[in-house]
Simulated assay, not measured.
Amino acid sequence: MAVIKSRALVLEKPGKDPLVREIDVLDPGPGEVRVRMAASGVCGTDGHAVEGTHPLRGLPVVLGHEGAGVVESVGAGVTALREGDHVVCALAVPCGVCRQCARGLAAHCNSPKRAQAIAGLAADGTTRMRRDGEPAHPFFGVGTLSQYTTVRQEQAVRIDSDLPLDEFCLTGCGVITGVGAALNIGQVQPGDTVVVIGCGGVGANVIQASRIAGASRIVAVDTLPEKLDLARRFGATDTVDARGDVPAAIRAIEPDGADIVFEVVGNPSLTASALTLARVGGKCVMVGIPPVGATLSLDAFALVGNRQLLGCRGGAVVPARDLERIVRFYRAGHLRLGELVGRRLALEDVGKAFAELGSSSFARSVVVF
């Protein structure tokens, strides 16, 4: 094995445009694998990192956090993977030994090992990427907008080699978060009425998973008519233009309120409004990530009606478990991934994808290496 040169999208400082640069990707250490990336989605959270509204654990940052590829080499002690395996890069990997994991709550693992992995640090406290000889930090511990990346073996979840990597790259974040929000946190039940506010990449998958779970009515809310059209294709039964009177429109559809409302934008004022759209005993799930330091002001009386306000850290997923479920849905024809991809482009053209974040007519742009 040897250090590999890799073209990668590097953010030197929030507020500045990220640029394609050459980096060094080091050999995998014990318990690690190096992955030759096949494809990576461009997620809104990457845009938040560029804007400076998402916390970064070190600079410079190699962007990208939803990707898939092929294992190029393995470090000492790796037993679950071998060279040539097709993998999805996972973000939230439970440690398996902390109090939460021991109680069967692996999705809520909050151990130092998990935090270290998400910070892009290996077990020895260093990174496996270098920019001009200095450490570079893979975003969310994976840095998938790079030709190569090195991750812990637990962060590389093997999938069957016949599955399309340019579609399954999206399962690393947008798909698994949306599906997890609906099935793990909201726990959509047959016959439920669901409202989804924000119908981009994650929202579209909340809609898909709610349909799979048997929701009888799925109301999509967005400001872009193109996103509402997209929502209908994924299973929305009703659409509401967010530029109008949303509460009145929801009441016209479901006078008693929705069973579950998903706020997928990350806007605290929208979250407060979303809570009031839930029925007595209903739920509001805050899926979108608000800016660091943002505060939430709401009518506390809304909680008196036994309404629940729930957070959503990445869909409360255990990657190996939830990706297996996603593969089953995909093979059965229930979960559509190809339709999420509106554009495939080269790494050098990734600026187009960033410029359209939040305003495109489709769910995701995918960089294909």
Rank of each mutant, 00 (worst) to 15 (best):
A2Y: 07
A2G: 11
K5I: 03
P14H: 00
K16N: 06
V20P: 08
V25Q: 10
V25M: 13
D27L: 10
V33P: 00
V33N: 02
M37N: 11
A38Y: 05
T45M: 02
T45W: 01
A49P: 03
G52W: 06
G52L: 13
R57S: 02
P60S: 04
P60Q: 04
V61H: 04
A68I: 00
A68M: 07
V70G: 08
V70E: 06
G77C: 04
V78S: 04
V78I: 09
G84V: 05
H86T: 14
V87R: 02
L91I: 13
V93P: 01
C95E: 02
Q100R: 07
A102I: 10
R103M: 13
G104V: 05
G104F: 09
K113D: 05
A117C: 00
L121H: 13
A122S: 13
A123V: 09
D124R: 00
T127A: 10
D132R: 14
A136I: 01
F139P: 06
F140A: 12
G141Q: 06
T149A: 10
Q155F: 06
V157N: 08
S161E: 12
S161A: 13
S161T: 09
D162A: 11
P164R: 01
L165T: 08
E167Q: 15
C169D: 09
G172L: 01
C173G: 07
G174E: 07
T177V: 00
G180R: 11
G180N: 13
A181I: 04
L183G: 06
N184C: 12
N184T: 09
I185P: 00
G186H: 04
Q187G: 07
G191V: 11
D192M: 14
V195I: 15
C199L: 06
C199T: 07
G200E: 01
G201K: 11
N205S: 05
V206K: 11
A209H: 13
G214N: 13
S216W: 05
I218G: 14
V219K: 08
V219D: 14
L224P: 11
E226D: 12
K227C: 14
L230C: 04
V246A: 00
P247S: 08
I250H: 07
I253R: 15
E254G: 01
I260W: 01
I260V: 12
I260R: 07
V261E: 08
V261Q: 03
V264A: 15
V264R: 14
V265A: 01
G266L: 05
P268C: 01
S269N: 03
S269H: 04
A274K: 09
L275R: 10
L277R: 04
L277H: 02
V285G: 01
V285I: 12
M286C: 08
M286Y: 04
V287C: 11
G288R: 12
G288M: 11
P290S: 05
V292P: 03
V292W: 11
S297I: 04
S297T: 15
D299A: 13
A300N: 09
A300K: 10
F301G: 09
N306I: 00
N306S: 14
C312E: 02
R313C: 09
G315T: 13
R321C: 08
R325I: 07
R328L: 15
Y330I: 01
G333N: 09
H334I: 00
L340H: 14
V341A: 15
L345A: 03
A346Y: 07
L347Y: 09
D349N: 09
F354K: 07
A355S: 12
S360G: 13
S361M: 02
A363K: 10
R364N: 12
F369D: 05
